[in-house]
């Protein structure tokens, strides 16, 4: 039998690719294979138009301030509207760090420059003086029941969520969205925005046609538990 296909989009890989963002693509493709699926990764670059609805999953990585400013114009002009529609329609999106900020209304850099995005989600980001750097542990109910998520954050942007937007989780250790309100990330429909370089992929079923079973995650859980033992609680 032919393996069911899973189509993964990767937005601005040539610019928004920092701090091991490639790791999320590696994890998603490998786990798809181990689940018996046939993953295909399509890069969506600057200047290219994109039909986001054809993807099952979209990944947007982080970028430095300079890279974000470079892609902002293209994002607003070409990508934002179809992406907003796809997100409303339930497209699964993993947006990390700079990619997460891009889903919001704007990013105000430490030099006072305003990088405008199109506000797909009601959130905004302003750079603070101190970078928020370190291991981070949050608690989330994303996975049917409360569980911890660990990762590493490194950002100067303080992100604030508008009324009615749910955070991905609550900070147990670290800074999270802004270092003040103990929230981290955002969840809207199937879109997840986060400052954490999450080391475990989000598995998702598509329309119930493809059932995926459980994988052996012993090694992954050991890595997770090691961080919880050091930093959790």
């Amino acid at each position: 039998m032919e393996r069911p296909r899973i189509h993964i989009g990767w937005l601005y890989p040539e610019y928004m690719n920092l701090y091991g963002d490639r790791g999320n693509i590696i994890v998603l493709t490998q786990r798809s294979r181990w689940h018996g699926l046939d993953p295909e990764v399509t890069q969506v670059r600057m200047g290219e138009s994109a039909d986001f609805a054809r993807f099952d999953l979209l990944v947007i990585g982080g970028g430095q301030d300079r890279e974000q400013a470079l892609v902002a114009e293209d994002f607003v002009r070409v990508k934002a509207r179809p992406l907003a529609e796809a997100i409303e329609d339930g497209l699964a999106v993993l947006a990390v760090c700079g990619g997460y900020q891009m889903l919001g209304k704007y990013f105000k850099t430490h030099t006072g420059e305003l990088i405008r995005f199109s506000g797909i989600l009601d959130l905004w980001t302003e750079a603070g003086r101190e970078r928020m750097i370190g291991n981070c542990v949050i608690e989330s109910d994303l996975f049917e029941g409360t569980r911890t998520i660990v990762g590493f954050e490194n950002h100067s942007g303080r992100t604030y969520l508008g009324k009615g937007l749910r955070p991905l989780g609550r900070v147990l250790k670290g800074y999270g969205n802004n270092g003040a309100d103990r929230t981290e990330g955002v969840v809207y429909k199937s879109t997840v925005g986060t400052y954490l370089l999450i080391q475990r992929a989000l598995d998702r079923r598509y329309g119930g046609q493809v059932k995926i079973g459980a994988l052996n995650d012993d090694l992954e859980m050991r890595a997770h538990e090691a961080i919880i033992a050091r930093f959790g609680k």
Binding site: Y19, G20, D21, R22, G23, N135, F152
Partner: peptide, 9 residues
């Protein structure tokens, strides 16, 4: 370096 995500690169 306290961030080990570089291992993915």
């Amino acid at each position: 370096g306290t961030d080990v995500s570089w291992l993915w690169d």
